[in-house]
């Protein structure tokens, strides 16, 4: 008993190792450091407009990462490789439904989210009912989606974003911030509420940390897991819609840029790939961190080769701060 108490006192005391164990804090500190570094390398990097632009890009990644985060939290090697395909598909659907007209925005939102949710549900059914490993199922689905993109793009103009949507994504909307940042904040709040304040959220953590125990406790494991994949697809669909608002029109396989980065954002946010631990607030910081890092690398004047080498090496160093695997000799 006294040993335990001493241990607790030890843990609560200020110590650097404990601080480093807080992924959110690490990410926030790194964000500030990177902004300072960027400002040093190229003055104006940390100006309000630039930060705003970075946040818009981060919001796009962050929305995809929200779904990815849910799937990973659900455990059993949960991962969704199909998000890239869904983002691309949804961008094309959105472009064609809106075709530059504001009246098409609502149908586009519905179509994109529904399409994403549909493919997500297929993933979930494959993973739960047919018990295909998530990596395999979503990888196969990615192939199907890429094929579907080729079919849709043949002969059909890929469409344009409605002016109001572009306005929402890129222009100040409320308190000088674009609508998409407000949307992202709203998603962040909803995710926090969902995960920390609802039965559903607790069940997600339950199946993520010990599926069998959760099942024995009466948690509808399959239903929860299917809905996680459905949500992941829906978030990716929403992100595709926002993406076309940002870019104006969709281009080939644009979503591929979101597939693995969405997983990296989750990991940098402190959610281990083994699931059952972590949350979305960290992931949001992880997405911002990733985007700032990429932005610094495009700002400094080096070759594409050097940029990629530094990016890869930096990611490896960053990962050292977060959930390393358990040592065998424990």
């Amino acid at each position: 008993m006294s040993v335990e108490a001493a241990g607790k006192a030890e843990a609560s005391r200020f110590s650097l190792t404990n601080l480093i164990r807080q992924p959110l804090l690490v990410a926030l500190v790194l964000i500030v450091l990177l902004l300072a570094l960027g400002e040093m390398l190229s003055p104006g990097f940390a100006s309000p407009q630039q930060i705003l632009r970075l946040l818009i890009v981060a919001a796009l990644l962050g929305i995809v990462a929200a779904g990815q985060n849910l799937v990973i939290l659900g455990g059993r090697e949960g991962i969704d490789l199909s998000v890239g395909g869904i983002v691309s598909l949804s961008a094309i659907i959105a472009g064609n439904v809106m075709n530059g007209a504001d009246s098409g925005i609502l149908p586009a939102i519905l179509a994109c989210v529904a399409a994403g949710a549909l493919f997500g549900t297929f993933n979930g059914i494959g993973v739960t009912l047919l018990r295909i490993p998530p990596l395999v199922m979503t990888l196969g689905m990615l192939g199907v989606l890429q094929g579907l993109l080729v079919v849709i793009r043949q002969g059909v103009p890929s469409g344009r974003a409605a002016p109001a949507l572009s306005e929402f994504v890129t222009r100040p909307f409320l308190l000088g911030l674009p609508g998409i940042i407000w949307l992202w904040v709203l998603i962040g709040l909803l995710m926090a509420f969902l995960l920390r304040r609802t039965v559903f959220g607790y069940r997600v953590y339950a199946i993520g940390s010990n599926e069998q125990a959760a099942f024995l406790a009466g948690v509808p494991v399959r239903l929860i897991r299917i809905s996680l994949f459905t949500l992941s697809g829906a978030f990716a669909g929403l992100a595709g819609l926002c993406l076309i608002g940002y870019a104006g029109s969709s281009f080939a396989n644009v979503g591929e840029l979101y597939m693995l980065p969405s997983i990296i954002a989750v990991v940098l946010g402190g959610t281990p790939l083994s699931g059952g631990k972590g949350g979305y607030t960290g992931t949001m910081a992880g997405a911002v961190l990733l985007v700032i890092l990429q932005s610094i690398l495009t700002t400094i004047n080096i070759d594409e080769s050097g940029r990629q080498m530094i990016f890869g090496a930096t990611l490896l160093v960053l990962m050292l701060f977060y959930g390393r695997g358990r040592a065998m000799r424990a």
Binding site: P272, G312, L316
Partner: peptide
């Protein structure tokens, strides 16, 4: 002991560089 999926993705960026 980094997580294989993300760590090898990072090294793949490095190798591509």
């Amino acid at each position: 002991r980094l997580q294989a999926i993300v760590a090898t993705f990072a090294t793949s960026i490095f190798f591509t560089g």
